[in-house]
Design a binder for these strands. Structure first.
Length: 649
RNA sequence: GGGCCCGUAGCCUAGUUUGGACAAGGCGCCGGCCUUCGGAGCCGGAGACCCUGGGUUCAAAUCCCAGCGGGCCCGCCA
């Protein structure tokens, strides 16, 4: 017997038994929704129902006595996976599973389905686009941004295994002032060949250029404020200037040549800020020299990103350049169309989108979970100089994505919630209301550093690459200590997947809605509740299988009578349900959690019970099946969160 | 000022969507394990008014209301 969802079979049986029993006993009562839950303790059974509490109100009988009647009624009918039913507590109906049958079904299914065990297919597979990461090509990916590709890639992997056709997209945001700034600096330096990893080199030029321009800009604004004696503005501007001046000092300290050269060159320009804006405008217009320059810079930066992605095993199916949507008129046409709706107005020379009015006219506030009295701010669509803003371009891009897929998931930080809302409302205004419902903003919370605020524009960040390096280095030290006999090459290879795995796990393990405070301690954890711990447990299970060097020929599953064995059988049988929940609710952290719990139980098992030498042979075989199924689930779970499952380490 | 997110042992987290039985792990702390298959491990112990106050309910960490604390957003940045 093979089942894609062994625990689900048990659950369905319990539901059916419960429903039939209640129908027979109380034909006049409509059944409350029968949700079965997992009891707090394993002694209470594997599934339980609290429907008697609800039923008691309708029937006017104590929950406990109802539970007893129902349990007795169910017990008079035949079972398959169910072992027994009983009334418990104040009125619960508890179901105990027939462990021998569940073990047999679970282990045989796991072995048979192997690399597909747990991956229950969706009834209606969809074409899904997962857009994730989309870090601007300005500087290396920092640790705050790194949560995005880790979550996004895991989501994509989970949805693929769920049977959907998933395409991962990277939106290259090469339009806008920021890319113009880096390109400006890059050109001033005479388009240098990158020293070291290109994204880090680009990042350095970006920070210095941005810093110089900001200082110039602030100085001018301060002068203006002085003339108009705007006291409050002045104080604030001066604070900002102080901050940038200290950034400049830090930068010049570390990179004197580059800094001084850029400063000299920038000073040759009457107004660097204006030059940047000019470049931005020319790029949007598709002017050739601007195109060549900015694409060259962006390409170099992306080349660096690709190296990082390769290292962490993340690939994109499509690289979508924002500028293409501008040049191919997608943006202009969207804007024209939007202008013809009653939701766009002029204000102080710029084009505004009235998101509030759309929400009202289409009565969308309750649907979008907004309060009636909340007034949605309007969105600026176009600058006075005719160039567009990020969200405007994103509207055009979103339409394109929604035309290519039935569902679009945008993995974007929660700080962009408002912009994503405005974007969605623009889709309604444009008549894409139906498609807008298929647009999901997967919002995750920020990664913060204790002590100071990360600011990529100020060059204050910890690069993802650096975190990976540290993790791999620590892993190397650990491997060298634990397995000195291994060759240098083997040690390096192990250190790589251990270190990378640890970092990925630390970012995927936490509920995406919760903020993560970055600490080295968290990321460099190789002990319990970490990728290395699960990897180690997997390698251990593999090792037992290797040593046994045989297939379980005649397992007798009823001999698996130890509590820990009981728990492991349950966890393996439940993996498909966990997977479904993770896929449907977009919660990769559930997978990490389940793998970790299984690893915990397996290690307890490992330390207390022999496998290969267990007697009689039927027990040894049954345990071997358990080890093998554990190995399969750990590996499949790790695959979903993008962590390598090694056979040795 | 308005909106969104977060608040669970000293620290980090699970559980909150879908209310159910004595709130579950990890780190750290204390005490044990050279138990045959891999010690990145195992066993035991101490440690929680689930931010506060109301409300709904047979039942609230979970739902509702009002606060408090922290973060984010409200830009002709992205």
């Amino acid at each position: 017997m093979v089942s894609t969802n062994p625990f689900g079979e048990f659950r369905s049986e319990c539901e059916k038994l419960l429903r039939n029993a209640v129908n027979r006993l109380f034909p006049e009562v409509s059944l409350p929704k029968t949700v079965l839950e997992i009891p707090p303790s394993i002694e209470l059974g594997e599934l339980a129902s609290s429907l008697c509490f609800e039923l008691s109100k309708r029937i006017g009988e104590k929950p406990r006595s109802l539970a007893e009647k129902i349990a007795a009624e169910i017990s008079s009918t035949p079972f398959t996976l169910v072992e027994s039913v009983e009334a418990a507590g104040a009125g619960y109906v508890n179901f105990h599973v027939n462990l021998e049958k569940l073990a047999s079904l679970t282990f045989e299914s796991a072995e048979e389905l192997d690399e597909d065990y747990g991956f229950v297919k969706a009834e209606a597979p969809l074409k899904i686009i997962v857009e994730h990461t989309s870090v601007n090509p300005l500087h290396p990916i920092h640790i705050g941004q790194a949560r995005n590709p880790i979550l996004g890639d895991s989501l994509a992997q989970i949805l693929r295994k769920r049977g959907h056709t998933v395409s991962t997209h990277y939106y290259v945001d090469d339009v806008g002032r920021q890319t113009a700034i880096i390109a400006y600096g890059y050109e001033k330096l005479g388009r240098p060949k990158p020293e070291g990893k290109p994204d880090h080199f680009i990042g350095l030029i970006y920070t210095i250029t941005n810093c110089i321009i900001e200082i110039e800009r602030l100085k001018k604004e301060i002068k203006k404020a002085e003339e108009l004696s705007l006291r409050e503005d002045l104080a604030q501007l001066r604070r900002q200037l102080d901050d940038w001046v200290s950034v400049a000092a830090e930068l010049r300290e570390k990179h004197r040549n580059l800094f001084d050269k850029l400063l000299d060159e920038a000073r040759k320009d009457e107004n660097p800020e204006q030059a940047v804006n000019e470049l931005n405008r020319r790029y949007e217009e598709g002017e050739e020299t601007a195109k060549r320059l900015i694409r060259e810079v962006a390409d170099q930066c992306l080349e660096g990103f690709r190296k990082t992605f390769e290292r962490v095993g993340i690939r994109f199916d499509s690289w979508d350049w924002e500028s293409d949507f501008v040049w191919k008129s997608h943006v202009r046409k969207t804007l024209e169309k939007l202008k013809s709706t009653p939701y766009v107005f002029q204000s102080a020379g710029v084009l505004e989108f009235d998101a509030e009015k759309v929400a009202d006219d289409f009565e969308l506030k309750p649907k979008l979970g907004l309060r009636k009295d909340y007034e949605i701010p309007s969105l600026t669509l176009m600058r006075a100089d005719g160039t567009t803003l990020y969200t405007t371009r994103d509207i055009a891009y979103s339409i394109w994505k929604l035309e290519k897929a039935e569902k679009v998931i945008n993995v974007i930080g929660m700080e962009q919630t408002l912009a994503q809302l405005q974007l969605k409302l623009a889709l309604y205004a444009l008549g894409y209301g139906e498609q807008a419902e298929n647009l999901v903003h997967f919002a995750y919370n920020l990664v913060t550093l204790p002590g100071y605020k990360m600011a990529s524009r100020k060059g204050r960040y910890i690069a993802f690459d650096q975190v990976l390096d540290e993790a791999v280095e620590k892993a190397y030290a650990e491997v060298s200590k634990r397995s000195p006999h291994l060759s240098e090459e083997e040690k390096r290879a192990i250190a790589e997947f251990v270190g990378v795995g640890a970092v990925k796990y630390s970012l995927v393990e936490v509920d995406p809605a919760k903020p993560v405070v970055f600490t080295w301690e968290r990321v460099l954890n190789f002990e319990r509740n970490s990728a290395p711990y699960i990897q180690y447990t997997h390698a251990r299970a593999c090792s037992i299988m290797r040593k046994a060097a045989r297939k379980p020929e005649k397992p007798d599953y009823k001999l698996l009578a130890q509590p820990v064995e009981h728990e492991i059988i349950l966890m393996i049988s439940r993996f498909p349900e966990i997977f479904i929940e993770a896929a449907e609710n977009l919660k990769p952290n559930l997978i990490a959690e389940h793998a970790n719990l299984l690893a915990d139980k397996f290690n307890t098992f490992y330390n207390s019970l022999p496998v290969i030498k267990a007697q009689p042979p039927e027990l040894s075989d049954a345990r071997l099946s358990l080890v093998n199924a554990t190995r399969i689930v750990l590996r499949n779970a790790l695959t979903l969160i993008g962590v390598k499952a090694p056979e040795k380490m």
